[in-house]
């Protein structure tokens, strides 16, 4: 009797783990396998297409080593970093306000979270409509009397600095951060606010010394998700950035879709660089987090 329960217990445990297997296999085969297969495609020697450069295995990667592409990396990573940090900070501040007075302003929650359900393609389009020199905001500015001609409105779409791109991303990602962290902030407030007040702490001291430090892993994780997504996303820079802007996903997709099979390894190599950067950033974050925990902290 004892033995059978023990065996069936072990079997049950095994069954529970069995449930993970399909999803794990799926990710291993398609995410990891797909990446590795792509990698092998990018090593395909040019010989398949032409007779020269027969043994050049890394030609696609070598071709990327030039100033223009390095600049593109700078621009792409810069935009992604700016979007993730700006969205992270704005989202955090907004969630703090929302939690503080959510009882009064329920409808704000709806507005603050609605953009999560709207595709990036449309957010790009929405911002094109309002930010263009002939857009809706420029009409407002004219009607109010801030500007007197269409040219006086600043260039925010297809511009040099990617202002439109960053704004369109923020429109999507600030609500994402709010959606992600506000339930946790709500819980942290109910757990710690009273204790902090009892020790004399003000609202801002409670936020700075208690709420944000405990929330940190979750918040940074959310920013990493935003960073990784922005790094690889195509629609917004494709619609809102100028052609010479240098967004790698856009350049890669052009190589992939317009210049034939011959250039496919280049497209893969470009995306591979992005994946590598995100992996590197992630590794650094995980390393920092582990070190933080190894000092003995337990947050959740």
């Amino acid at each position: 009797m004892w033995r059978t329960t023990k065996i069936s217990n072990q079997l049950n445990k095994y069954k529970g783990l069995l449930g993970i297997l399909p999803a794990l296999l799926f990710m291993l085969i398609f995410f990891l396998g797909g990446t590795l297969h792509s990698l092998s495609l990018s090593f395909e020697s040019k010989e398949t297409f032409s007779l020269v450069l027969q043994e050049e295995k890394f030609w696609a990667y070598k071709e990327l080593i030039n100033v223009t592409f390095l600049q593109s990396i700078g621009v792409t990573v810069g935009i992604a970093a700016a979007v993730s940090v700006l969205s992270g900070v704005t989202g955090l501040i907004a969630s703090l306000f929302l939690v503080e007075r959510s009882r009064h302003w329920k409808w704000l929650n709806i507005i603050f979270q609605a953009p999560v359900g709207i595709p990036h393609l449309l957010s790009a389009y929405l911002f094109m409509q309002v930010l263009m020199q002939s857009g809706w905001y420029s009409r407002f500015a004219y009607q109010i009397g801030w500007i007197d001609s269409i040219e006086a409105f600043p260039v925010l779409v297809h511009d040099e600095w990617g202002v439109g791109v960053i704004l369109a991303y923020m429109w999507k990602e600030v609500p994402f951060i709010i959606l992600l962290i506000s339930p946790f902030i709500l819980k942290l407030f109910s757990d710690w606010r009273e204790q902090s007040i009892a020790l004399g702490g003000s609202f801002s001291q409670t936020v700075r010394w208690v709420i944000v430090p405990i929330l940190l892993p979750m918040w940074v994780g959310g920013m990493w998700v935003v960073f990784a997504f922005t790094l690889g996303a195509y629609e917004i820079p494709a619609l809102l950035a100028s052609t010479s802007f240098g967004s790698i996903p856009v350049e890669a997709f052009q190589e992939y879709s317009q210049f034939g099979l011959e250039r496919q390894p280049i497209a893969i190599a470009m995306n591979m660089v992005l994946a590598g950067i995100s992996f590197l950033v992630g590794s650094i974050l995980i390393f920092l987090q582990l070190r933080w925990y190894n000092q003995g902290r337990r947050v959740w």
Partner: peptide, 11 residues
């Protein structure tokens, strides 16, 4: 004030 649970800041 001290409550039943210690409520120490975990971080």
């Amino acid at each position: 004030i001290v409550f039943q649970e210690p409520r120490l800041f975990p971080h």
